[in-house]
Simulated scan of single mutants.
Amino acid sequence: MQPMPVFAAAMDRIFATPSMGAAAVWISATTSQERPIRVIRRAPDRITEFGAARFVSDTMMVDVRLSDLSDPRSGDLIVIGTDSFIIQGEPIRDRERLIWTLDLGPS
């Protein structure tokens, strides 16, 4: 499915808005190649159940445009300001194939 140009343009504007998007740097774990990218940070709580107990933990996730980063991989590094994070797990694309969602852990 090819994304609608209007929707892609809207996503570009959202990522460019300073109150939504943030400048970051992606660094490949395998080639040490690096590239500036724009991200939208999210930090939802994650609930994990273990037997009868429920644990709430902090998470760090970012959304990245495919046009900024075509092939992120687990183990790559994302640097936002002075904070460094490792991509953990498999990156997930949205339905329109415009946005990656990356689950990050501290580096």
Score class of each variant (00 low, 15 high):
39 V>L: 01
52 A>Q: 12
19 S>Y: 09
9 A>C: 11
13 R>K: 15
51 G>H: 03
42 R>I: 05
78 I>T: 06
11 M>A: 07
56 V>S: 03
74 S>H: 04
8 A>D: 08
59 T>P: 09
31 T>P: 14
13 R>N: 11
69 L>C: 03
70 S>L: 11
48 T>Y: 14
12 D>T: 04
47 I>P: 14
25 V>I: 06
19 S>Q: 11
56 V>H: 03
58 D>M: 12
40 I>Y: 01
9 A>P: 13
77 L>Q: 09
76 D>F: 02
66 L>I: 14
63 D>P: 11
56 V>M: 03
19 S>R: 07
71 D>I: 09
39 V>S: 01
28 S>R: 02
9 A>K: 06
53 A>D: 07
47 I>M: 10
53 A>S: 09
79 V>S: 10
68 D>H: 02
23 A>Q: 11
15 F>Q: 01
70 S>G: 10
79 V>P: 13
22 A>K: 14
64 V>C: 01
45 D>F: 04
13 R>H: 13
29 A>K: 07
67 S>T: 09
30 T>S: 10
68 D>I: 01
17 T>S: 13
58 D>H: 10
44 P>W: 00
22 A>H: 13
38 R>E: 03
61 M>L: 15
50 F>N: 11
59 T>G: 04
18 P>W: 00
11 M>E: 07
46 R>P: 10
21 G>I: 01
15 F>I: 00
33 Q>M: 06
13 R>F: 11
72 P>D: 00
25 V>W: 00
34 E>D: 10
7 F>E: 12
38 R>Y: 02
37 I>N: 02
31 T>Q: 06
12 D>E: 08
19 S>I: 11
38 R>S: 06
74 S>Q: 05
23 A>M: 14
60 M>D: 11
77 L>I: 10
73 R>E: 12
